[in-house]
Design a protein around this nucleic acid. Structure first.
Lengths: 184, 184
DNA sequence: TACAATTTTCAGAAATTTCTGAAAGTTAAG
DNA sequence: CTTAACTTTCAGAAATTTCTGAAAATTGTA
């Protein structure tokens, strides 16, 4: 498991960005390595390539499995577990997107829903609840939208992402149609 | 600066989610507090309400300013600095979105661009570069799309987010039009 | 069943991040 | 200027997160 300097740089960078993406340095590195390396890799190889302990690799793999980002394989005649990234680059990106939605939005939505159940006791509290309601509505809409995006077929997603300023036109078109319908 | 138990819960939760959003606990709490509290608040009030040191508040405010999430105000006859959240809930969400795009995507795009400049030395390296190219293309497209979304007017953004499964239809419509044009 | 290969766990160590509070810096009023 | 009010800085302390490596658990083979 020798990494080219290119691969090395890629892996180290993903390690550094890891924390902004929701996992720690070594998990980021493991993910990067499995992403550029198309052949299945076992835990010892990961530990050696990244110069980290076997225990750390084990924990990292567990986390990547929780994220649904890796797949387990077996080589005939070898008892070791081998791993690859789970699917194409696009599959991985979609999974990261979905998991982040879950982890970054859902807990907050749950809490805010609870907070909105109890009635405000005084005007001060009523005002705060109004703000909480606004935050809730926004996050709820965002969550729904993220869900909609997640469900798009690949070709539709690409189409959407490539629209650029065409998105504006498309939305205006839609708005035009609607107001026509409403007005007639 | 007494916080109702509602507000308290809201603030504490944002503190806990903070790390997933890209800032630390106290910065998350400060942001939450400024978000529900419509009146301007000064540093001492923040320190007292959140039970954190004055120095910590100062650092937190600096960071929130770097995120463009707060606004400085002055009260006549008072030399203290007062702060409010920068704009409406939607303004704040858009700013967080833009800043996160910058912080989570741009550094990676820059690095990958560099990696793709040097030619691969062997087939092994060529293969890794192919993967890097795929990652780059995806992130570049994502970055552009995020940019497009950032630039949408409020009403268009809402429209888009509310489309739900209508998004599918709209995209198919667009595809239909295009293929018609292409085929004719 | 016995055993060897492999993975997982987890207590403590190491590294990193966050926080405090006192000192230094800045600003405005008199 | 001088002084008082306020803000920022930053070294070290505290808290948290990550990592190691040895022991325990699991798994497959003979």
């Amino acid at each position: 498991m020798k990494l080219s300097s290119q691969a090395q740089a890629f892996v180290l960078h993903f390690g550094e960005m890891g924390s902004r993406w929701g996992f720690n340095r070594t998990v980021g590195q493991m993910f990067a390595l499995l992403t550029i390396h198309s052949e299945p890799v076992n835990a010892d190889q990961l530990a050696e390539a990244l110069k980290i302990s076997r225990g750390n690799v084990s924990m990292g793999l567990k986390e990547l499995q929780a994220w649904r980002l890796i797949e387990l394989h077996h080589q005939p005649g070898d008892r070791k577990d081998y791993f690859t990234a789970a699917g194409s680059i696009w599959d991985l990106a979609r999974t990261v997107f979905e998991e982040r939605r879950k982890r970054e939005l859902d807990p907050t939505l749950t809490l805010l829903r609870q907070l909105l159940l109890t009635d405000p006791r005084d005007p001060q509290e009523a005002q705060a609840q109004e703000r909480i309601q606004e935050v809730y509505s926004l996050l709820e809409m965002l969550d729904q939208f993220a869900n909609t995006l997640s469900k798009l077929e690949h070709k539709d997603l690409i189409r959407l992402m490539k629209l650029g300023s065409g998105l504006n036109k498309l939305l205006d078109l839609k708005a035009g149609a609607k107001s026509k319908k409403t007005n007639s």
